[in-house]
């Protein structure tokens, strides 16, 4: 009979029990999870069961993590995400959430850039910890991302991103996520990216401040390659604050727009209108050729 063992399908003899299987496959495992629930019982196994054996204190390898992603997402989806390179400009309230979502989703290569260090006030909405205060945000985020996805190819830049270094920093990215705080920096980045790489999408955010309804945050496409997530109006200057849950909604819009773009899906709608090409499949001119070079992506 066929069952799933640690996310992989296996054929095992009929009439086998959970403990027999554990002793055969994972003799060191001290925790057994059968169909989503931890159990100590030596239950007879049935076809279609999902079994997870855990050895306490053992960190799964990169290979095991990648196999889990393929089992969860399907091989084709995961191979596409694995070949993708996404840059995130700014890892504050938006960018730290986007980075974590994309690392969990199994994006192969991330480039993150930010000039700031972690401050106490950041912990109100950003994905950092008390013991990381004073640490460059990109360094703190690298630690978290590697704890989530050990196989991630990550490049960090502890620097201010502007129109002069943008092209160099993010040259190997298929998609750029704009996750800045200031409106003028958002505008400058948008112009420079779309001018320099007219074929490569930019996923920006605008109007994420305050305590307004989560449902007012949407993804729009004002230009051919520009997606903007937010309500378009709620400025931090006007409403005074940013809230973890609302910024998180906008960041998840951004991360999901990236995933859909990479998979060749329209970020705005499930209604099949025109077939979208994934930016990683696009035939680019020589100057636009993107090379996901492991060395360039941190290796």
């Amino acid at each position: 009979m066929r069952i799933s063992i640690n996310e992989q399908l296996h054929d095992i003899p009929a009439e086998m029990t959970l403990d027999q299987l554990r002793r055969h496959k994972y003799p060191g495992a001290d925790i057994c999870v059968l169909n989503g629930a931890e159990t100590k019982a030596n239950t007879p196994l049935q076809s279609g069961d999902r079994v997870v054996f855990i050895c306490s204190g053992h960190t799964p390898s990169t290979e095991e993590f990648n196999a889990m992603l393929k089992a969860r997402h399907g091989v084709e989806v995961q191979q596409t995400l694995e070949r993708s390179c996404v840059a995130i400009a700014g890892v504050g309230g938006l960018g730290s959430n986007v980075a974590i979502a994309l690392a969990r989703a199994g994006i192969g290569c991330l480039i993150i850039a930010d000039q700031d260090v972690v401050e106490l006030s950041n912990l109100q909405r950003q994905q950092y910890f008390l013991d990381q205060i004073g640490c460059p945000k990109v360094t703190a985020m690298a630690t978290t991302l590697k704890r989530i996805n050990p196989g991630l190819h990550l490049t960090t830049h502890h620097t201010r991103v502007d129109s002069h270094n943008l092209t160099e920093l993010f040259a190997s990215a298929h998609i750029l996520v704009e996750a800045f705080d200031h409106a003028s920096a958002k505008a400058e980045l948008t112009q420079t990216w779309l001018q320099t790489f007219p074929e490569r999408p930019l996923v920006a955010a605008s109007g994420v401040a305050g305590f307004g309804a989560a449902n007012s945050i949407i993804t729009q496409r004002p230009f051919a390659r520009l997606y903007v997530c937010g309500d378009g109006a709620s400025a931090v200057e006007a409403v005074g604050s940013l809230c973890a849950s609302r910024v998180g909604v906008a960041a998840s819009h951004q991360a999901h727009a990236v995933v859909r773009l990479l998979l060749g899906l329209d970020p705005l709608t499930d209604t099949p209108t025109t077939k979208h090409n994934s930016p990683i499949d696009k035939t680019l001119s020589n100057t636009e050729k993107i090379d996901i070079d492991k060395k360039q992506c941190g290796g």
Partner: peptide
């Protein structure tokens, strides 16, 4: 003409 007017916060 398409204009995107960015507001601060992130």
């Amino acid at each position: 003409i398409e204009i995107v007017n960015f507001v601060g916060g992130g």
